[in-house]
């Protein structure tokens, strides 16, 4: 039923279709990209800084979006970068979701002191500015995909925990949960099979929003030079690499990865927005 209501909203459907296309392109990048930009055998330094729609020296390849300072085809680099940005953004959001669910459910179910203690930790975490926490964490942990993932998860879990706990608290007070407790069902079963399925509506919206902000945060960190190493270039790193070329009017090295990033984040945000409208009957006019 939710799916049917969502399908009626054109903006949401368009965004979802576009996101699916991006995910497909990213997943199939090795097959779809005209060139593997990180295979040194396929890259010619003499073909560097070519503008968009120019041809390679042997005339066989078309550089749709131009080449960067090392001769890599921008379109291919963007596809590979999309892969990493998507993987890290979605991956970190999902892991943070899991962590948040565990903490939130535990806090809501057990209540009392456990709830107070857990929520105090969540409050402290949420009152710290995310970018500073991410910055310090990454400076401490160093560069690397796993460390970036860890830092992003640590920054995001608190939002999920608070949301889950709020929704679970509402469900906790209802009669059917009391009945389940009275029946003697084990705690984990009540939490997972009875409380959680009824909490997922606001959770979905939060997840999409967090995914969007995770992708942006990772790009920002990569742009500043911390986070992902040079060997795993995400879109943020591509943009930062192209920064110096802007003043030389070679805009394509930085602008096109940026456009890809913006389109990615916009589509995720629009999906989240449309889901929010669909789930709240008051807004769905």
């Amino acid at each position: 039923m939710l799916a049917r209501r969502f399908l009626r909203r054109h903006a949401g459907v368009a965004a979802a279709a576009f996101l699916l296309l991006l995910v497909l392109l990213a997943a199939l990048a090795p097959l779809v990209a005209p060139q593997d930009p990180y295979d040194l055998g396929q890259v010619w330094i003499m073909e560097n800084e070519r503008p968009p729609l120019s041809r390679s020296d042997d005339g066989r390849r078309l550089f749709l979006l131009g080449t960067d300072g090392a001769g890599r085809d921008m379109a291919s680099a963007i596809l590979y970068g999309l892969r990493i940005s998507l993987a890290i953004g979605i991956g970190s959001a999902l892991v943070a979701l899991l962590l948040g669910i565990v903490v939130g459910l535990a806090a809501a179910y057990y209540g009392g002191r456990i709830d107070a203690a857990l929520m105090r930790i969540v409050d402290v975490q949420l009152s710290l500015p995310t970018i500073l926490v991410a910055l310090v964490l990454l400076a401490v942990l160093g560069q690397g995909v796993d460390k970036t993932l860890m830092a992003l998860v640590l920054v995001q879990w608190a939002t999920f925990a608070r949301n889950v706990r709020g929704a679970a608290m509402v469900e906790r007070g209802k009669d059917y949960i009391e009945a389940a407790v009275g029946q003697g069902l084990p705690a984990w079963r009540i939490m997972l099979r009875h409380v959680l399925p009824n909490c997922w509506a606001p959770l979905i919206v939060t997840t999409t929003n967090q995914m969007a902000s995770a992708i942006t945060l990772e790009a920002t960190m990569s742009f500043l030079g911390i986070g992902l190493p040079q060997t795993e270039p995400s879109l943020g790193l591509l943009i930062s690499n192209g920064f110096d070329y802007v003043l030389a009017h070679q805009y394509w090295i930085s602008v096109f990865p940026g456009v890809a990033l913006v389109l990615l984040v916009v589509s995720v945000s629009v999906i989240g927005d449309q889901l929010r409208i669909v789930l709240n009957p008051k807004l769905d006019a």
């Binding site: 942006t216 920002t220 742009f223 943020g236 913006v262 945000s269």
Partner: peptide, 22 residues
Amino acid sequence: SILGVSVPVFWLGLILIMLFSV
């Protein structure tokens, strides 16, 4: 507003520099 919350700050700075400075 959706665009505004989605565009990363550093890329926007880049575009503005390109447009207004370069």
